[in-house]
Structure formats: C-alpha cells, structure tokens
C-alpha cells in the first residue's frame, strides 16, 4: 500500500503546482469576463468543467512524464554523450585531443528521433493543429501540420547537436535560418505564413524542452573545449526556427502537387 500512498502524495503535489500555474490565467480570464465584459458566457458550467479537465489532464501528464520519460531520457542523453560510449572504452583520454564530428552519429540520430517523437506528443501543437484544421475548413490537415513541424524540430535539434560538437558560433546558424525563412516567405502560399511563424513557438513546451535541454547540457559537458554555460543553450532556438521552414515547405510542396495534377 506504500506505493499507493506515494502516488497520491505525488499526484497531489503536481496538481498543486499546476493549479498555481493555471490560477493567474484563470484569474485574468474570469476577472475580465466579469469586470469588463460583464456578461456571463453562454455555457459557463461547460467552460469551468473544461478548465478542470485541463487541470487534471495536465497534472497526470506531467507526473507521468516525470515518472516514465524524463529519467530515462536524461539517462540516455548522458550515456550517449559519454566519451567512453563514443570513442570505445579503452580509447579513453588520448582521443580527446581531436574531435571527429562523425563519431557522434548516435547522438545525431537520437536527437532526430527524440525531437520528432516528442513533438508529435506535444499538447500545444495538437491544439494549434486542431484549430488550424477547423479554420481552414480541412485544407490544412492535422497530421500534415504535426508531421511537418515534427520533422522541422528533428532536423533542427540534430543540426544543433552538430553545432555543439564542432563548436561553431550559434548566431551564424540562426541568421542564415532567418534569411531562408525570409526568402521562403516570398514564395510560400499567403495562407500558411502566420501559421508557419506560429509553429516555431508552439513546438517547445512541456515534453520537448526538458529532454532537449538535458541533451544539450550533456553534450557540451563531454565534448572537450565546450563550455556548457555557453554552448549548452541554443538547442531550443534551433527547435523553434526549423519548424517555420518545414511548415512553409510543406505548404509549398502541397501547392506544387495540386498544380501539377491540375495541369494533367
């Protein structure tokens, strides 16, 4: 019965911290609703119960992540970036003089896979995808958007890991990324542009950030010559930049496809 007790006490703690997160938001919303708009929303009971569902759901979600995913994900990030794993057990220290970025292939693959799969599970992306599907009358598919964002995050994080390994300054990557986004903006279908810009911000919340941060810190601690304080940051930035490109690319591709079939 001991573990039952611990489940409940932990669940209680997480719920409490979720409530403190949600409270300011609820206070602002209901405060404005009653003080400024001064009208009862049409289905208040419905909305309040919706808030409770969100609260309970988020608490379960966070606790589950804390139990199932984060410990093992962090452990993996540590193990995969461990020099012994990368260079083989006996090679140890003498190899550390020179870094071969190719040696880190498992890290890049892990970064790609974990970026992709955590983005698919990201609740705020699901929310935006549902809304976009609604508003566009089904023209933008929920899965089309989610998969292209996930692909963008995956590519972004693997490239970010490569950057940490070779030690390039981050701003060149980001600036080049911005230039590509600007160029794409001129050619992408007008309807997708705001959504594409948005998708950069929605990708990185509850699931992705803790795992990706652990990966970045682990990597910059073990690659010789990297400073975790300077190089450990920046993966999130990659994860927010690349989905913008991939969503625009998705829209461009589907436009090109429909034009191609029209011609036929």
């Amino acid at each position: 019965m001991d573990w039952m007790n611990s489940i409940f006490s932990e669940l209680f703690e997480v719920t409490l911290s979720t409530v403190t997160d949600v409270l300011p938001i609820a206070a602002i919303i209901f405060g404005f609703q009653f003080a400024v708009i001064r009208k009862k929303p049409a289905n208040l009971a419905h909305i309040v119960s919706g808030f409770i569902w969100v609260l309970v759901g988020l608490s379960f979600f966070l606790l589950g992540l804390e139990w199932a995913l984060f410990p093992i994900g962090r452990l993996m990030a540590e193990q995969l970036t461990n020099p012994e794993f990368i260079h083989g057990a006996q090679a140890g220290k003498q190899l550390l003089e020179q870094i071969n970025w190719q040696d880190y292939y498992w890290v890049y693959l892990f970064a790609f896979c974990i970026g992709f799969s955590t983005t698919i599970a990201e609740p705020s992306l699901i929310a935006v995808a549902i809304k976009a599907n609604d508003v566009s009358g089904g023209a933008i598919g929920v899965w089309g958007l989610r998969l292209s964002v996930a692909l963008g995050v995956a590519i972004g994080i693997s490239l970010g890991c490569y950057r940490i390994v070779v030690g390039d300054p981050i701003h060149w990557y980001i600036i080049v990324g911005y230039v590509i986004v600007v160029i794409q903006t001129f050619f992408a279908p007008k309807l997708i542009i705001p959504l594409a810009y948005d998708s950069g911000g929605v990708t990185t919340s509850t699931v992705t950030v803790p795992l990706v941060a652990a990966l970045g810190l682990g990597l910059s601690e073990t690659v010789p010559g990297r400073n975790p304080l300077i190089d450990g940051f920046g993966l999130i930035a990659f994860a927010s930049l690349f989905p913008i490109m991939s969503v625009m690319a998705y829209a461009q591709l589907s436009e090109a496809k429909s034009k191609f079939f029209e011609k036929k």
Partner: peptide, 29 residues
C-alpha cells in the same frame, strides 16, 4: 508503466478540456 498510463490519461483529459473549456472561452471573449 504507471507513468505511461498517466501520460496517456493526462493527454486525453487535456485535449478534452481544451475543446470544452479553453477554446470556447478564448473565442467568446
């Protein structure tokens, strides 16, 4: 395994609450 069950339940409840509470209040405001 418990954690995975929690994550699945949590995501389900969250999406449900989203469509019932967060979206409607945002739009009605």
């Amino acid at each position: 395994l418990t954690g995975i069950v929690f994550v699945i339940l949590g995501l389900t409840f969250f999406i449900h609450g989203l469509e019932q509470g967060l979206f409607p209040i945002g739009e009605s405001m």
